[in-house]
């Protein structure tokens, strides 16, 4: 290639680089949301200080050991989030965060969640918690259901199947472990697995055992409803997938 052609090639490449850099820096789309609040900024600092990105992702950026946390505040209740941040879960070590720090980190995750979606979802996907409320109707023991939702049990335990975390189907828990076995697990967790120790009171344990007994009794229809929903979600094609933002 002649020197003049090389000079032209380099000039084109330099212009392309400057143009692309300018487009990224001048793009207003990233600034449509207000800057992080003071609490969110403190939470962001905690996120980096504890190197959360080693195992977790935000918008798909980071490590692969733990789940993407972009929209975790929609998936987990505040109580469950606080619980994980305090005691850890499975391979996640416990972080000795005081209540203010936990609140700041939660605030950061809430503000991240407001900025977009981290993972693509099928249009008909319904969060398992919502589906459980719908399936349970008015028949389920209310206090047990409320506790199960507050602790985000369905974030890990899904009917019909072991979940991503290897957590078993809750609709068969009483049959498999018996009421006392279930109480023991709820009270102490299962060491060596992601199932944590929740520190439930005796009343909470009673309420949850009642709810799980109800789930077990109605297991067949609940599993059927979840299965039907999954089948309707299963009808998809590559053309349904989003091109840009989810």
């Amino acid at each position: 290639m002649s020197p003049s052609a090389r000079k032209l090639l380099i000039a084109v490449l330099v212009c392309a680089f400057c143009l692309q850099t300018w487009m990224v820096y001048a793009d207003p789309a990233g600034r449509t949301e207000p800057p992080l609040s003071p609490a969110g900024a403190r939470g962001r600092a905690l996120w980096h200080d504890h190197n959360c990105q080693s195992c977790h992702q935000l918008f798909g950026f980071g490590g692969f050991l733990g789940p993407d946390l972009t929209n975790v505040v929609e998936r987990l209740s505040e109580a469950r989030l606080e619980h994980i941040l305090t005691l850890g879960s499975g391979q996640m070590p416990p972080f000795d965060l005081d209540p203010d720090a936990r609140a700041d980190l939660t605030c950061f995750l809430e503000e991240m969640s407001a900025r977009g979606r981290g993972q693509a979802r099928h249009a008909e996907w319904q969060p398992p918690g919502e589906l459980l409320v719908q399936v349970a109707g008015d028949d389920a023991p209310a206090s047990g259901l409320a506790l199960a939702l507050a602790q985000s049990c369905v974030a890990c335990h899904l009917p019909n199947h072991a979940s991503d975390y290897g957590a078993p189907d809750l609709t068969t828990a009483i049959t498999r472990l018996g009421p006392q076995g279930v109480r023991d697990v709820l009270a102490a967790g299962i060491p060596g697995t992601p199932m944590p120790r929740f520190g439930f009171s005796e009343d909470d344990l009673d309420a949850l055992t009642d709810f799980l007994t109800w789930l077990d009794r109605n297991g067949e229809s609940i599993r059927h409803t979840f299965e039907v929903t999954r089948h309707s979600e299963g009808d998809w094609s590559i053309l349904d997938l989003p091109w840009w933002e989810y």
């Binding site: 693509a120 996907w125 899904l158 199947h161 072991a162 979940s163 991503d164 999954r230 979600e233």
Partner: peptide, 8 residues
């Protein structure tokens, strides 16, 4: 699985 909201 993630797209369909199913467990893996």
């Amino acid at each position: 699985s993630r797209y369909l909201g199913q467990s893996a």
